[in-house]
Design a protein around this nucleic acid. Structure first.
Lengths: 206, 206
DNA sequence: CCGTGTGAAAACCTTCACAGCT
DNA sequence: AGCTGTGAAGGTTTTCACACGG
Protein backbone atom coordinates (compact mmCIF):
# COMPACT_ATOMS: atom_id res chain seq x y z
CA UNK A 1 0.00 0.00 0.00
CA UNK A 2 1.44 3.37 -0.93
CA UNK A 3 0.23 6.43 0.90
CA UNK A 4 1.37 9.98 0.34
CA UNK A 5 3.21 11.79 3.09
CA UNK A 6 0.28 14.13 3.46
CA UNK A 7 -2.12 11.29 4.00
CA UNK A 8 0.25 9.62 6.42
CA UNK A 9 0.68 12.81 8.37
CA UNK A 10 -3.04 13.36 8.62
CA UNK A 11 -3.69 9.81 9.74
CA UNK A 12 -1.01 10.15 12.41
CA UNK A 13 -2.72 13.27 13.67
CA UNK A 14 -6.11 11.59 13.61
CA UNK A 15 -4.62 8.79 15.65
CA UNK A 16 -3.41 11.27 18.23
CA UNK A 17 -6.77 12.98 18.28
CA UNK A 18 -8.47 9.63 18.83
CA UNK A 19 -6.26 9.08 21.87
CA UNK A 20 -7.61 12.34 23.18
CA UNK A 21 -11.23 11.43 22.41
CA UNK A 22 -10.68 8.05 24.02
CA UNK A 23 -9.96 9.69 27.33
CA UNK A 24 -13.29 11.49 27.08
CA UNK A 25 -15.15 8.29 26.32
CA UNK A 26 -16.54 9.37 22.95
CA UNK A 27 -18.51 6.69 21.08
CA UNK A 28 -18.92 7.77 17.50
CA UNK A 29 -17.10 10.54 15.71
CA UNK A 30 -17.80 12.08 12.30
CA UNK A 31 -15.27 12.89 9.61
CA UNK A 32 -16.03 16.55 10.18
CA UNK A 33 -15.19 16.39 13.89
CA UNK A 34 -11.95 14.58 13.13
CA UNK A 35 -11.12 17.09 10.45
CA UNK A 36 -11.61 19.96 12.88
CA UNK A 37 -9.52 18.18 15.45
CA UNK A 38 -6.53 17.94 13.18
CA UNK A 39 -6.93 20.95 10.91
CA UNK A 40 -8.03 19.34 7.66
CA UNK A 41 -11.23 18.97 5.68
CA UNK A 42 -13.82 16.24 6.13
CA UNK A 43 -13.37 15.25 2.47
CA UNK A 44 -9.76 14.79 3.12
CA UNK A 45 -10.25 12.58 6.14
CA UNK A 46 -12.82 10.43 4.38
CA UNK A 47 -10.64 10.04 1.33
CA UNK A 48 -7.70 9.02 3.49
CA UNK A 49 -9.80 6.42 5.26
CA UNK A 50 -11.03 5.21 1.92
CA UNK A 51 -7.44 4.67 0.76
CA UNK A 52 -6.79 2.63 3.88
CA UNK A 53 -9.98 0.63 3.47
CA UNK A 54 -11.36 1.92 6.76
CA UNK A 55 -15.12 2.44 6.79
CA UNK A 56 -17.68 4.00 9.08
CA UNK A 57 -21.44 4.00 9.45
CA UNK A 58 -23.92 6.10 7.55
CA UNK A 59 -25.34 8.95 9.56
CA UNK A 60 -23.33 8.05 12.66
CA UNK A 61 -19.71 8.33 11.68
CA UNK A 62 -16.89 6.15 12.93
CA UNK A 63 -16.77 4.23 16.21
CA UNK A 64 -13.83 5.90 17.92
CA UNK A 65 -12.24 2.88 19.58
CA UNK A 66 -12.58 0.62 16.57
CA UNK A 67 -11.28 3.32 14.28
CA UNK A 68 -8.24 3.80 16.46
CA UNK A 69 -7.50 0.11 16.35
CA UNK A 70 -7.97 -0.08 12.62
CA UNK A 71 -5.71 2.87 11.92
CA UNK A 72 -3.16 1.55 14.38
CA UNK A 73 -3.15 -1.79 12.65
CA UNK A 74 -2.85 -0.34 9.15
CA UNK A 75 0.06 1.88 10.13
CA UNK A 76 1.71 -0.58 12.50
CA UNK A 77 1.27 1.77 15.40
CA UNK A 78 0.10 -0.88 17.82
CA UNK A 79 3.54 -2.35 18.24
CA UNK A 80 5.61 -0.73 20.97
CA UNK A 81 8.72 0.90 19.55
CA UNK A 82 12.02 1.47 21.21
CA UNK A 83 13.69 4.82 20.72
CA UNK A 84 16.85 6.50 21.93
CA UNK A 85 17.91 10.09 22.31
CA UNK A 86 21.34 11.26 21.25
CA UNK A 87 22.49 14.52 22.77
CA UNK A 88 21.49 15.34 26.36
CA UNK A 89 21.70 19.11 26.41
CA UNK A 90 18.71 21.21 27.43
CA UNK A 91 16.53 19.97 24.61
CA UNK A 92 17.65 16.34 24.68
CA UNK A 93 17.11 16.00 28.40
CA UNK A 94 13.71 17.67 28.11
CA UNK A 95 12.82 15.03 25.53
CA UNK A 96 14.11 12.28 27.82
CA UNK A 97 11.17 12.72 30.09
CA UNK A 98 8.57 13.88 27.65
CA UNK A 99 5.76 11.71 28.99
CA UNK A 100 3.69 11.89 25.84
CA UNK A 101 6.01 9.55 23.97
CA UNK A 102 5.33 6.75 26.43
CA UNK A 103 1.57 7.28 26.31
CA UNK A 104 1.77 6.65 22.63
CA UNK A 105 3.69 3.41 22.62
CA UNK A 106 7.15 4.88 22.21
CA UNK A 107 9.60 3.76 24.81
CA UNK A 108 12.73 5.82 25.29
CA UNK A 109 15.16 3.15 26.38
CA UNK A 110 18.49 4.94 26.18
CA UNK A 111 20.16 8.34 26.13
CA UNK A 112 23.60 9.12 24.74
CA UNK A 113 25.96 12.02 25.16
CA UNK A 114 29.60 12.68 24.49
CA UNK A 115 30.10 14.27 27.91
CA UNK A 116 30.45 11.81 30.75
CA UNK A 117 29.88 14.60 33.25
CA UNK A 118 26.52 15.37 31.78
CA UNK A 119 25.51 11.76 31.97
CA UNK A 120 26.49 11.52 35.60
CA UNK A 121 24.62 14.62 36.60
CA UNK A 122 21.30 13.71 35.04
CA UNK A 123 18.79 11.98 37.26
CA UNK A 124 16.47 9.74 35.33
CA UNK A 125 15.47 6.13 35.21
CA UNK A 126 16.43 5.81 31.58
CA UNK A 127 19.84 4.30 31.05
CA UNK A 128 22.47 6.76 29.90
CA UNK A 129 25.60 5.95 27.97
CA UNK A 130 28.62 7.53 26.42
CA UNK A 131 28.19 8.06 22.72
CA UNK A 132 30.99 5.56 22.10
CA UNK A 133 28.60 2.84 23.12
CA UNK A 134 25.88 3.90 20.71
CA UNK A 135 26.46 1.23 18.09
CA UNK A 136 26.66 -1.54 20.63
CA UNK A 137 23.58 -0.49 22.64
CA UNK A 138 21.37 0.23 19.62
CA UNK A 139 22.17 -3.19 18.18
CA UNK A 140 21.85 -5.13 21.41
CA UNK A 141 18.59 -3.55 22.40
CA UNK A 142 17.16 -3.50 18.86
CA UNK A 143 16.28 0.16 18.98
CA UNK A 144 14.17 1.27 16.00
CA UNK A 145 14.12 5.02 16.33
CA UNK A 146 16.77 7.64 16.94
CA UNK A 147 16.09 11.16 18.14
CA UNK A 148 18.93 13.57 17.42
CA UNK A 149 19.44 16.60 19.65
CA UNK A 150 23.16 17.25 19.36
CA UNK A 151 24.91 20.47 18.26
CA UNK A 152 25.01 21.13 14.51
CA UNK A 153 28.58 20.07 13.97
CA UNK A 154 28.02 16.57 15.33
CA UNK A 155 24.73 15.86 13.60
CA UNK A 156 25.87 14.06 10.48
CA UNK A 157 28.31 11.89 12.39
CA UNK A 158 25.59 10.84 14.81
CA UNK A 159 23.19 10.12 11.97
CA UNK A 160 25.81 7.91 10.30
CA UNK A 161 26.40 6.02 13.53
CA UNK A 162 22.71 5.45 14.06
CA UNK A 163 22.26 4.17 10.54
CA UNK A 164 25.29 1.90 10.81
CA UNK A 165 23.85 0.49 14.03
CA UNK A 166 20.67 -0.47 12.19
CA UNK A 167 18.24 2.25 13.20
CA UNK A 168 15.15 2.47 10.97
CA UNK A 169 13.91 5.98 11.53
CA UNK A 170 15.33 9.29 12.70
CA UNK A 171 13.74 12.38 14.15
CA UNK A 172 16.22 15.20 13.80
CA UNK A 173 15.82 18.21 16.08
CA UNK A 174 18.91 20.01 14.88
CA UNK A 175 18.85 22.87 12.39
CA UNK A 176 21.09 20.91 10.03
CA UNK A 177 19.67 18.62 7.39
CA UNK A 178 20.98 15.08 7.57
CA UNK A 179 21.99 12.93 4.63
CA UNK A 180 21.05 9.27 4.95
CA UNK A 181 20.31 6.33 2.67
CA UNK A 182 16.91 6.53 1.01
CA UNK A 183 15.50 3.60 2.93
CA UNK A 184 16.05 5.32 6.27
CA UNK A 185 13.01 7.37 7.14
CA UNK A 186 13.85 10.69 8.68
CA UNK A 187 12.13 13.91 9.55
CA UNK A 188 13.82 17.22 10.28
CA UNK A 189 12.23 19.40 12.94
CA UNK A 190 14.04 22.67 12.73
CA UNK A 191 12.61 25.11 15.27
CA UNK A 192 14.25 28.13 13.75
CA UNK A 193 12.93 27.36 10.28
CA UNK A 194 9.52 26.85 11.78
CA UNK A 195 9.58 30.24 13.52
CA UNK A 196 10.86 31.81 10.35
CA UNK A 197 7.99 30.23 8.45
CA UNK A 198 5.44 31.65 10.85
CA UNK A 199 7.01 35.10 10.78
CA UNK A 200 7.31 35.13 7.00
CA UNK A 201 3.80 33.92 6.49
CA UNK A 202 2.12 36.57 8.59
CA UNK A 203 4.14 39.35 7.12
CA UNK A 204 3.18 38.25 3.61
CA UNK A 205 -0.47 37.65 4.16
CA UNK A 206 -1.65 41.20 4.53
CA UNK B 1 2.35 38.13 -3.69
CA UNK B 2 0.89 34.76 -2.84
CA UNK B 3 3.24 31.87 -2.20
CA UNK B 4 2.26 28.34 -1.37
CA UNK B 5 3.17 26.92 2.02
CA UNK B 6 5.52 24.50 0.31
CA UNK B 7 7.37 27.30 -1.41
CA UNK B 8 7.49 29.32 1.78
CA UNK B 9 8.83 26.40 3.74
CA UNK B 10 11.55 25.75 1.19
CA UNK B 11 12.61 29.37 1.08
CA UNK B 12 12.81 29.45 4.86
CA UNK B 13 15.07 26.43 4.76
CA UNK B 14 17.21 27.96 2.03
CA UNK B 15 17.54 31.04 4.19
CA UNK B 16 18.80 28.92 7.05
CA UNK B 17 21.19 27.10 4.77
CA UNK B 18 22.52 30.42 3.54
CA UNK B 19 23.26 31.40 7.12
CA UNK B 20 25.34 28.27 7.33
CA UNK B 21 27.15 28.94 4.02
CA UNK B 22 27.77 32.49 5.14
CA UNK B 23 29.84 31.27 8.04
CA UNK B 24 31.97 29.32 5.60
CA UNK B 25 32.47 32.34 3.37
CA UNK B 26 30.97 30.85 0.23
CA UNK B 27 30.76 33.21 -2.75
CA UNK B 28 28.41 31.73 -5.31
CA UNK B 29 26.04 28.85 -4.85
CA UNK B 30 24.08 26.90 -7.47
CA UNK B 31 20.45 25.89 -7.30
CA UNK B 32 21.61 22.30 -7.12
CA UNK B 33 23.76 22.90 -4.04
CA UNK B 34 20.94 24.73 -2.33
CA UNK B 35 18.55 21.95 -3.23
CA UNK B 36 20.84 19.35 -1.68
CA UNK B 37 21.25 21.48 1.40
CA UNK B 38 17.54 21.58 2.08
CA UNK B 39 16.31 18.31 0.57
CA UNK B 40 14.52 19.50 -2.54
CA UNK B 41 15.19 19.55 -6.29
CA UNK B 42 17.09 22.21 -8.17
CA UNK B 43 14.02 22.81 -10.38
CA UNK B 44 12.05 23.46 -7.30
CA UNK B 45 14.48 25.96 -5.89
CA UNK B 46 14.78 27.82 -9.17
CA UNK B 47 11.02 27.93 -9.61
CA UNK B 48 10.60 29.30 -6.10
CA UNK B 49 13.15 32.02 -6.76
CA UNK B 50 11.42 32.79 -10.01
CA UNK B 51 8.14 33.32 -8.17
CA UNK B 52 9.90 35.74 -5.84
CA UNK B 53 11.60 37.55 -8.70
CA UNK B 54 15.03 36.61 -7.41
CA UNK B 55 17.61 35.97 -10.10
CA UNK B 56 21.11 34.59 -10.35
CA UNK B 57 23.91 34.52 -12.88
CA UNK B 58 24.27 32.16 -15.79
CA UNK B 59 26.88 29.52 -15.26
CA UNK B 60 27.78 30.77 -11.81
CA UNK B 61 24.67 30.51 -9.72
CA UNK B 62 23.59 32.90 -6.99
CA UNK B 63 25.82 35.18 -4.92
CA UNK B 64 25.23 33.82 -1.43
CA UNK B 65 25.20 37.07 0.51
CA UNK B 66 23.07 38.96 -1.97
CA UNK B 67 20.67 36.05 -2.24
CA UNK B 68 20.26 35.95 1.52
CA UNK B 69 19.48 39.62 1.60
CA UNK B 70 17.02 39.37 -1.25
CA UNK B 71 15.17 36.45 0.27
CA UNK B 72 15.21 38.14 3.65
CA UNK B 73 13.72 41.26 2.14
CA UNK B 74 11.00 39.43 0.22
CA UNK B 75 9.91 37.46 3.25
CA UNK B 76 10.42 40.25 5.77
CA UNK B 77 13.01 38.24 7.63
CA UNK B 78 15.46 41.08 8.02
CA UNK B 79 13.39 42.77 10.66
CA UNK B 80 14.14 41.58 14.18
CA UNK B 81 11.12 39.94 15.73
CA UNK B 82 10.20 39.73 19.37
CA UNK B 83 8.92 36.44 20.66
CA UNK B 84 7.80 35.08 23.99
CA UNK B 85 7.55 31.61 25.45
CA UNK B 86 4.55 30.51 27.45
CA UNK B 87 5.09 27.51 29.70
CA UNK B 88 8.45 27.07 31.39
CA UNK B 89 8.55 23.36 32.02
CA UNK B 90 11.41 21.23 30.72
CA UNK B 91 10.71 22.03 27.10
CA UNK B 92 9.82 25.68 27.55
CA UNK B 93 12.93 26.43 29.55
CA UNK B 94 15.07 24.56 27.02
CA UNK B 95 13.58 26.83 24.37
CA UNK B 96 14.29 29.90 26.51
CA UNK B 97 17.96 29.59 25.87
CA UNK B 98 17.95 28.00 22.46
CA UNK B 99 20.69 30.17 20.98
CA UNK B 100 19.72 29.52 17.38
CA UNK B 101 16.68 31.74 17.63
CA UNK B 102 18.81 34.77 18.41
CA UNK B 103 21.25 34.05 15.61
CA UNK B 104 18.35 34.25 13.25
CA UNK B 105 16.90 37.56 14.31
CA UNK B 106 14.36 36.24 16.78
CA UNK B 107 14.60 37.75 20.17
CA UNK B 108 13.00 35.94 23.07
CA UNK B 109 12.04 38.84 25.28
CA UNK B 110 9.78 37.21 27.83
CA UNK B 111 8.81 33.93 29.43
CA UNK B 112 5.53 33.17 31.19
CA UNK B 113 4.43 30.48 33.55
CA UNK B 114 1.53 29.92 35.91
CA UNK B 115 3.82 28.81 38.70
CA UNK B 116 5.57 31.58 40.54
CA UNK B 117 7.97 29.09 42.08
CA UNK B 118 9.18 27.97 38.71
CA UNK B 119 9.78 31.54 37.66
CA UNK B 120 11.79 32.25 40.76
CA UNK B 121 13.95 29.20 40.39
CA UNK B 122 14.95 29.74 36.78
CA UNK B 123 18.19 31.58 36.16
CA UNK B 124 18.17 33.44 32.89
CA UNK B 125 18.56 36.96 31.66
CA UNK B 126 15.20 36.88 29.94
CA UNK B 127 12.46 38.50 31.97
CA UNK B 128 9.99 36.08 33.45
CA UNK B 129 6.42 36.80 34.41
CA UNK B 130 3.35 35.19 35.83
CA UNK B 131 0.90 34.22 33.14
CA UNK B 132 -1.54 36.79 34.54
CA UNK B 133 0.67 39.47 33.09
CA UNK B 134 0.73 37.99 29.61
CA UNK B 135 -1.75 40.37 28.01
CA UNK B 136 -0.11 43.42 29.49
CA UNK B 137 3.46 42.46 28.65
CA UNK B 138 2.72 41.26 25.12
CA UNK B 139 0.93 44.53 24.35
CA UNK B 140 3.45 46.82 26.00
CA UNK B 141 6.46 45.21 24.42
CA UNK B 142 4.78 44.67 21.03
CA UNK B 143 5.63 41.00 20.90
CA UNK B 144 4.88 39.44 17.50
CA UNK B 145 5.36 35.75 18.11
CA UNK B 146 4.20 33.36 20.79
CA UNK B 147 5.72 29.97 21.49
CA UNK B 148 3.43 27.65 23.40
CA UNK B 149 4.89 24.94 25.61
CA UNK B 150 2.24 24.45 28.27
CA UNK B 151 0.42 21.23 29.21
CA UNK B 152 -2.38 20.15 26.90
CA UNK B 153 -5.25 21.32 29.07
CA UNK B 154 -4.04 24.92 29.14
CA UNK B 155 -3.16 25.25 25.46
CA UNK B 156 -6.33 26.73 24.06
CA UNK B 157 -6.66 29.22 26.88
CA UNK B 158 -3.10 30.41 26.33
CA UNK B 159 -3.66 30.66 22.58
CA UNK B 160 -6.74 32.78 23.18
CA UNK B 161 -4.85 35.08 25.53
CA UNK B 162 -2.02 35.51 23.05
CA UNK B 163 -4.42 36.35 20.25
CA UNK B 164 -6.34 38.78 22.42
CA UNK B 165 -3.07 40.49 23.30
CA UNK B 166 -2.37 41.05 19.61
CA UNK B 167 0.14 38.35 18.79
CA UNK B 168 0.54 37.69 15.06
CA UNK B 169 1.99 34.21 14.89
CA UNK B 170 2.08 31.16 17.12
CA UNK B 171 4.38 28.17 17.24
CA UNK B 172 2.63 25.47 19.19
CA UNK B 173 4.74 22.72 20.75
CA UNK B 174 1.89 20.98 22.46
CA UNK B 175 0.22 17.86 21.12
CA UNK B 176 -3.13 19.64 21.00
CA UNK B 177 -4.26 21.55 17.96
CA UNK B 178 -5.21 25.14 18.63
CA UNK B 179 -8.16 26.98 17.19
CA UNK B 180 -7.49 30.59 16.27
CA UNK B 181 -8.85 33.20 13.88
CA UNK B 182 -7.82 32.64 10.28
CA UNK B 183 -5.59 35.69 10.15
CA UNK B 184 -3.39 34.38 12.97
CA UNK B 185 -0.62 32.28 11.50
CA UNK B 186 0.17 29.21 13.52
CA UNK B 187 2.12 26.03 13.19
CA UNK B 188 1.72 22.94 15.32
CA UNK B 189 4.88 21.02 16.14
CA UNK B 190 3.68 17.84 17.73
CA UNK B 191 6.64 15.63 18.64
CA UNK B 192 4.56 12.55 19.19
CA UNK B 193 2.82 12.83 15.85
CA UNK B 194 6.20 13.33 14.24
CA UNK B 195 7.61 10.18 15.81
CA UNK B 196 4.47 8.32 14.86
CA UNK B 197 4.90 9.51 11.29
CA UNK B 198 8.46 8.24 11.14
CA UNK B 199 7.52 4.89 12.68
CA UNK B 200 4.51 4.45 10.40
CA UNK B 201 6.43 5.39 7.33
CA UNK B 202 9.22 2.93 7.76
CA UNK B 203 6.91 0.11 8.64
CA UNK B 204 4.89 0.75 5.48
CA UNK B 205 7.72 1.24 3.06
CA UNK B 206 8.91 -2.33 2.81
C1' DC C 1 -32.84 13.52 6.76
C1' DC C 2 -27.62 13.34 7.54
C1' DG C 3 -23.07 11.60 7.12
C1' DT C 4 -20.38 8.14 4.50
C1' DG C 5 -17.86 6.50 0.17
C1' DT C 6 -16.00 7.54 -4.16
C1' DG C 7 -15.58 8.69 -9.21
C1' DA C 8 -14.78 12.89 -11.57
C1' DA C 9 -13.31 17.69 -11.84
C1' DA C 10 -10.53 21.19 -10.36
C1' DA C 11 -6.61 23.02 -8.21
C1' DC C 12 -2.12 22.72 -7.18
C1' DC C 13 2.84 21.32 -7.39
C1' DT C 14 6.67 19.34 -9.45
C1' DT C 15 9.26 18.05 -13.25
C1' DC C 16 10.80 18.66 -17.67
C1' DA C 17 12.70 20.76 -21.80
C1' DC C 18 14.95 24.07 -23.71
C1' DA C 19 16.11 28.93 -24.80
C1' DG C 20 19.33 32.26 -23.26
C1' DC C 21 23.27 34.14 -21.26
C1' DT C 22 28.46 34.47 -20.08
C1' DA D 1 30.07 24.24 -21.95
C1' DG D 2 27.31 25.02 -17.79
C1' DC D 3 23.71 26.89 -15.03
C1' DT D 4 19.77 29.97 -14.91
C1' DG D 5 14.73 31.13 -15.99
C1' DT D 6 10.35 29.71 -17.34
C1' DG D 7 6.33 28.02 -20.27
C1' DA D 8 4.28 23.74 -20.76
C1' DA D 9 3.59 18.94 -19.49
C1' DG D 10 2.83 15.69 -16.24
C1' DG D 11 1.52 14.05 -11.79
C1' DT D 12 -0.55 14.36 -7.39
C1' DT D 13 -3.75 16.10 -3.99
C1' DT D 14 -7.79 18.32 -2.79
C1' DT D 15 -12.37 19.46 -3.56
C1' DC D 16 -16.72 18.58 -5.21
C1' DA D 17 -21.08 16.22 -6.22
C1' DC D 18 -23.96 12.93 -5.46
C1' DA D 19 -25.49 8.05 -4.86
C1' DC D 20 -26.25 5.25 -0.99
C1' DG D 21 -27.90 3.55 3.47
C1' DG D 22 -29.71 3.63 8.30
Amino acid sequence: MKLSDNTLERICKVFGYLNFLSSKGVGFVSSLELAKGIGATAYNVRKDFSLLGVTGYTRRGYPAEVLKQQLGQRLNLTKRRKACIVGLGRLGSALLDYEKFAEDGFEIVAGFDSSINKIERLRTNIELYSIDQLTKVVKERSIDLGIIAVPAKAVQEVADKLVAAGIKGILNFSPVKILVAKNIVHLDMDFTSALRFVAAKFSLQK
